Amino acid sequence: MSIDTRDFRNALGKFATGVTVITTQDERGEQYGVTASSFNAVSMTPPLILWSIDKSAYSKEVYCQAEHFVVNVLASDQVAISNRFAQRGEDKFKDIKIEKGVGGSARIVGAVAHFECRTWQVYEGGDHFIIVGEVLEYDYQDGCGSLVFHGGRYALPEPHPMMLPGIDHSTGDGVLGQHFLYLLRQSLAAYRRDFYPRLSHLGVDEKEWRVLTLLLDRGPQPFTQVAQGVAQPPEDCEDTLSGLVRRDLVTESSGERQLALSAAGTELANKLLKMAQEHEQKVFDSVSDEEMRHMKSGLVHVIEQLGSR
């Protein structure tokens, strides 16, 4: 069976994971850090965990030879830290508060959990090295949300509405059925289920749709702004862009790496936008223009009200 790497990555993205930064220190005292979602528990007795590093990573030798490392489980407000450690070519620890952990490895302040480990074993794993660590020390914060990665994007963990105790779970009646957040989440899920499959008719997936329409709406953008605008980690945004560039829908300029739509990309993005507008009109066909304006202005008010805090 021949595996399409991009499609395989999409399938793996259906499994939600946390986001970590793995840190270590080499024998010269230089600090290293890399973003990884491949973190898993292995054993309770002894306490073992594992993670994996790409064999193409420039720091692979350091991690494979390190005696100790720290797994920093990132908090939901540490997206910028995740993006920082997912890239190369900069001082990753600049302006980031750290503490010294086992073997001098950095403990990132504000992370929801730290696992300070001794390297137990390193295994071959295809195009990755699998690193198993014995947990020597750990700590965690209660009441602080973790950063989640799902479907190629950052996400937030929330209690499932159907599992909240003491509430009528019917959609039309009871407290939950009329709660703003519940209605918003249910309507968003329903809208996505109906709209996203339509993208395949024009040969794109939901991640490519977000990049194309963002560039159409805002014009040429640096890569970092595109990744931030579509809420994708840089590595996954790279994967999305590679397909768009290969199909001559997006162009890249050298230097600051400015991304822009090609002529074919602009044509496709306009078609996608028109399809999105027509879909919206169909969904809200029975809603008056005035009601639609009130609905959208209400959502803008919520964004502004909560975003200002």
Rank of each mutant, 00 (worst) to 15 (best):
D248C: 08
Y196T: 01
D239A: 13
R210H: 10
K271A: 02
Q221T: 07
G243T: 09
R193V: 06
D248H: 10
V175I: 15
A227K: 06
E235S: 13
V245I: 14
L181K: 09
T251N: 02
T213E: 00
E290Y: 06
L215T: 06
L202D: 10
S262F: 01
E256Q: 09
M275R: 10
D248W: 00
G229C: 03
S242W: 10
M163Q: 10
L181T: 08
R210P: 00
L183F: 03
H169T: 11
Q281T: 14
A231T: 09
T213F: 01
D194L: 11
D217T: 09
R247I: 00
V287S: 11
T251V: 07
R210C: 03
K207R: 15
P234R: 07
Q228R: 12
T224R: 02
S170W: 00
R247W: 00
E252Y: 04
H201V: 04
L215K: 08
K282L: 10
G203I: 12
Q228D: 13
Q186S: 15
E252M: 15
P233E: 02
L261A: 04
R185G: 10
P234Q: 03
E290H: 08
Q258C: 01
Y196H: 09
K271V: 00
S242I: 05
R257F: 00
R185S: 14
G243I: 07
P165M: 05
S288C: 03
R246P: 00
R293A: 12
L244A: 04
P234G: 04
H279Q: 12
Q186Y: 14
D236R: 08
C237E: 11
P234A: 06
T213Y: 02
V230W: 01
A231D: 10
E208C: 06
E267L: 02
E291Y: 03
D289W: 07
V204Q: 11
E280S: 13
L215G: 05
A190I: 01
V175E: 14
Q232F: 05
L212Y: 08
E206V: 06
V211H: 13
D168P: 02
A260C: 01
K271D: 03
L199Y: 04
V283Y: 02
S187H: 13
L273C: 02
T240N: 05
Q277A: 12
V204H: 12
G255H: 07
P234Y: 09
V211K: 11
R247P: 02
A227H: 04
V226I: 15
A227N: 02
L214V: 15
L181P: 02
E256Y: 01
R198T: 13
Q258W: 08
Q277S: 13
N270V: 04
V230R: 00
V204N: 10
V230C: 07
L212P: 11
S286A: 15
E235Q: 10
L188Q: 14
A263E: 13
L181H: 11
R218C: 13
V230D: 04
E252I: 14
V226A: 03
D194G: 07
Q186E: 15
R210W: 05
H279N: 11
F284A: 05
L249E: 03
P233T: 10
R293I: 12
A276I: 01
G255N: 06
Q232S: 15
V226D: 06
P197A: 11
L181Y: 12
S242Q: 13
L184K: 03
G255V: 07
G166K: 10
G166W: 07
K207Q: 12
